[in-house]
Design a protein around this nucleic acid. Structure first.
Length: 287
DNA sequence: CCCACGACCTGTGGGC
DNA sequence: TGCCCACAGGTCGTGG
């Protein structure tokens, strides 16, 4: 589900509930997600105050008052849900609705203010970790991560350098988080189509003006998607339950057999497996 | 170093 | 209705 726009939407949804909140109770209902939870995960979180919520690439980061940062990755199917307690309570005693999906509710965070945030993840490709905040940049998940595509650090010069001499297509390389951080299958397909660049052209042989176009297209599609609250395919939703609607603006993703929407193009969208993943593109106008 | 591919895990949708 | 296969938003490790 989640690429940069979805993760950013989730972050924004969680922010009002978690930023500045003290965790009064934490529950991990199984020993692992994709990886085992760190040693003492629940104890280390309980009582800590989340200072802010940040995002880097597809990670949501919660720096804590205790000098550690809670790192969360949603994998393919990770999702957060926020609940407010129901009915009247006595101080310190909250009642919530029953889990809508007990089978996949893996982690629960309760705040002192009485909100409950539940992490769901049917496929368990997501993961969480606690890392010393001062050492975050050295952590293998973050060291070597490419620039944020919406930052100034992402530009044609940088892309040209990363693409230099590479025979793989830009499709594959843009999915590499070391080259640019936060793109996934959907937005790479969409950006290449907007830039009218073939996903298969050897990346090292893409001209500089085309790379400029590509950078602009990546920024544009991500900004539009964030503004739309991300894309909802099957079950993605923001933490407040809102559905994204960028999927209605897809020009190529999951649209094989439909006409190319590019101005003046009468091509038909195709699907081809590239490096094990579906690539959607217009064979006519993407060169 | 570069690249392709399978693995991880569960659910869903389409075809028959 | 039911079964089986293909495929799914992401990484990571292996092997050529």
């Amino acid at each position: 589900m989640p690429e940069l726009p979805e993760v950013e939407t989730v972050r924004r949804g969680l922010e009002p509930v978690l930023a500045g909140a003290r965790l009064s109770r934490v529950e991990a209902r199984r020993p692992d997600l994709r990886f085992p939870f760190p040693e003492g995960f629940v104890q280390r979180l309980t009582g800590a105050v989340i200072q802010r919520l940040d995002r880097r690439a597809k990670y949501i980061l919660a720096p804590l008052s205790v000098g550690e940062t809670l790192i969360m990755h949603l994998g393919m199917t990770g999702r957060f849900e926020i609940e407010r307690p129901q009915g009247a309570e006595r101080p310190g005693e909250f009642h919530y609705a029953a889990d809508p999906d007990p089978k996949h509710a893996h982690v629960l965070f309760e705040t002192e203010a009485g909100a409950r945030v539940t992490y769901y993840d049917p496929r368990r490709f997501g993961y969480m970790a606690l890392v010393e905040t001062a050492l975050m940049d050295l952590h293998p998940w973050f060291a070597g991560l490419g620039p944020e595509p919406l930052s100034d650090g992402f530009d044609a010069a940088r892309l040209a350098h990363a693409f230099e001499g590479r025979r793989q297509g830009p499709k594959t390389l843009l999915l590499d988080q070391k080259i640019v951080a936060g793109l996934g299958n959907i937005y790479v397909c969409e950006a290449l189509h907007r830039a009218r660049i073939s996903p298969f052209r050897p990346a090292g042989r893409i001209s500089r003006p085309r790379l400029e176009r590509l950078v602009a297209a990546v920024r544009q599609v991500l900004e539009e998607a964030i503004a739309a609250g991300g894309s909802t395919i099957s079950d993605y939703a923001a933490a407040d339950g809102a559905l994204g609607y960028f999927q209605h603006s897809f020009r190529v993703y999951d649209r094989q057999g439909r006409p190319c929407p590019n101005e003046g193009c009468d091509g038909v969208i195709a699907r081809r497996v590239q490096a094990g993943r579906s690539t959607f593109y217009c064979p006519k106008c993407q060169r």
